[in-house]
């Protein structure tokens, strides 16, 4: 879609600039900036990671703490993403199928994690769940450890990634309306049957897309996790934290090797996104 549409804006830009020369200059600037700010750094990551050849790269990637970090990151994503899928489905359903007081507020609140700095989220969780926090005495009394442990990392990751699924579903479900669900009800389908047999098939690609974005962010999140993880090597360090740690240890090769795995995940996300976008129905969702 986006690929096919691209010549049109370019032509319009050319006309706006008044001459083919103007268009060429604008396109040139865009290309140079993209190269300088996006492509070159990404290439450098891989160049640095492989600077001393394949064997040292593999050694770095399979280093014990790095492997542990990869394992922890995957575990966090596996816990956080399903929670956000459930949350996203429930919230999108409520927002698009019902009229209720405070709907606008709910929509805005859902977007909050996007506009708030992740580090603020991390600090906020410390203030609630930390030992000196709101629930601190209660948690300590019951011997529950949330901060500087897996639960804390999972919680902040859920917070930071919570808008992704909802944001994909709401516009689509708004466009689709409730006609199909209502027809299904008059045909005798129960609520669950309506969800599985009518709603879910209609939103599956948008949902999948939301899951992909949510997963990518859950794996890549640094700021919020950094606050609540406690940075215990091989214990509470996720992959992004491990990259930083290796870098501060002057282990550039190791840092770049770990970073390259994160980058690969990002590139895979992009590829999946490109495939899905072709399958998504048009919802008037521009750019994004």
């Amino acid at each position: 879609m986006a690929v096919i549409d691209m010549p049109a804006p370019a032509e319009r830009a050319a006309r706006a600039a008044g001459s083919p020369a103007g268009a060429r200059i604008l396109i040139g600037i865009a290309v140079v900036l993209t190269l300088a700010f996006i492509v070159v750094p990404v290439v450098v990551i891989f160049a640095q990671a492989f600077a001393r050849g394949l064997a040292p790269y593999l050694a770095s990637v399979t280093e014990r703490d790095t492997l542990r970090a990869v394992g922890l990151t995957v575990l966090v994503a596996l816990l956080a993403v399903p929670v956000n899928v459930a949350f996203g489905l429930v919230a999108a359903w409520a927002i698009t199928k019902f009229e209720f007081r405070g709907k606008k507020f709910l929509l805005t609140a859902i977007e909050l994690p996007f506009s708030i700095s992740p580090i603020v989220a991390g600090v906020a969780y410390i203030l609630v769940y930390g030992s000196n926090g709101l629930l601190g005495p209660f948690l300590e009394a019951n011997d529950l450890r949330i901060m500087f442990a897996l639960p804390g990392i999972v919680l902040v990751t859920i917070f930071v990634t919570s808008p992704f699924v909802v944001r994909e579903l709401v516009p689509l479900m708004q466009v689709q309306g409730s006609d199909q669900e209502e027809v299904a009800a008059t045909l005798g389908a129960s609520g669950l049957q309506i969800f599985w047999r009518v709603t879910l098939p209609n939103i599956r690609w948008a949902l999948f897309y939301g899951v992909v974005l949510c997963t990518a962010r859950a794996i890549g999140e640094f700021g919020a996790v950094s606050v609540v993880s406690g940075h215990v090597r091989g214990e509470t360090n996720t992959l992004p934290l491990q990259v930083e740690l290796l870098y501060h240890d002057y282990n550039a090769a190791g840092a770049f090797a770990a970073a390259s795995t994160l980058t690969l995940i990002a590139l895979a996300t992009l590829a999946i996104r490109a495939v899905i976008e072709r399958r998504l129905p048009r919802t008037g969702r521009v750019g994004h």
Partner: peptide, 12 residues
């Protein structure tokens, strides 16, 4: 039996 103006057939 209910029939909508825009059919509301299940597209899948």
């Amino acid at each position: 039996g209910f029939v909508f103006q825009y059919y509301a057939l299940f597209p899948h």
